[in-house]
Design a protein around this nucleic acid. Structure first.
Lengths: 190, 190
DNA sequence: ACTTTACCAGACAGACCTGTCTACCTTAGG
DNA sequence: CCTAAGGTAGACAGGTCTGTCTGGTAAAGT
């Protein structure tokens, strides 16, 4: 009980499985990708997989938590004023939506496959959304915005719409429209 | 060759299958619902099913086309001025997102399960989005809006975000924010 | 009266799914 | 030396998936 309880969180095999799951689940959907496929592509034995992840659902949760971690480190708000930092967050989202291989928000897509809001997977999705909305609200408060809560909801709506448009329509089309809407929202009419 | 080629589009059994598919696919996801389940709940023999729908993909396309038809007849823009009609369209969307059993936009959810943009299912999704955006653009032109195309894209983003928020967050929270944003967009700053 | 058409019931094939289990290998610490 | 842990390889069970096929019923048009 000194070092590891049951599953060692640091392990090359586990890392390979998680990386493979990240790529396949995002690109093809969760129900569409089986365990056999993941372990084959990760070059890992089945027993090893089930040693690290008790069930597929656990892997799916780990996949989404990995996505949260990546978004968190990639979308660090940059800029001096809070307003600039909000803009930078949206520029980051816009960048991603226009990148090749973009297939929409991983959390929205996952939620589409998991109807039950109480399912562990949906809880991770909710965690992500709470965090993102909290970040926006925090920046709006720092900017002295008169209606931080309501505006955070509006910005969240723009983010979701931007990711959907990036996946289903021309990715470059929605970006300027969202950019303009964000600029207007964070600098409320005098 | 006088009346029916191969499949009679009007048929009680076909109707039952389509209604069942509509309910199950929307509520639980497409890959998660099997043919066996649909025919059992529709009270239809397997041979009958495959007589009307050559494959599951055909049923999925028919399901989405049925969704288009329902949205089309339910979201008829009402009001005297074009601006009022745009508002009425969004009020309709807002109504649906707050209704019990709402699980997001059927087309966004379906696209999450079908990665290939050239797949027939994705083509139906694209059809819907073209139609909806065209409707908004048309109304904006009728309203004499200076930037109908760009504004239609912005409105589309708001619609997508509203449906996502309705499914994943508090449905009533996003509605006023979107309402305000729509009001601002269709009445551009003087 | 005959034929076509729609429908039901259910077996069946072949593939794929998750998850368990056995058996063996390799490496590092005590 | 030897033991424990992480890993590989792969068979296996039990279920579900799509799609086909056989066989029989009932109604409607010609």
């Amino acid at each position: 009980m000194t070092s590891t309880a049951t599953a060692p969180r640091r392990s090359p095999a586990r890392r390979r499985v998680l990386d493979t799951a990240l790529a396949l689940f995002y690109a093809e959907g969760i129900h569409a990708v089986g365990i056999d496929r993941i372990i084959a592509e990760a070059g890992v034995a089945k027993a090893t997989f089930y040693h690290h992840f008790p069930s597929k659902d656990d892997l799916v949760c780990a996949y989404l938590e990995e996505q949260i971690a990546r978004v968190r480190e990639q979308a660090v708000p940059q800029g001096e004023t809070p307003e600039e930092r909000i803009v930078s967050v949206f520029e980051g989202v816009g960048e991603v939506t226009c990148a090749p291989g973009f297939r929409g928000c991983a959390f929205i897509n996952a939620a589409a496959e998991y109807p039950d809001p109480d399912h562990p997977v949906r809880r991770v999705v909710a965690d992500f959304r709470r965090w993102f909305k909290g970040l926006l609200e925090e920046l709006l408060v720092a900017a002295g915005h008169p209606e931080p809560q309501r505006t955070a909801v509006a910005l969240m709506t723009l983010r979701d719409g931007l990711t959907v448009a990036g996946a289903l329509d021309d990715p470059a089309e929605a970006r300027p429209a969202v950019r303009a809407a964000v600029a207007h929202l964070i600098r409320p009419a005098a």
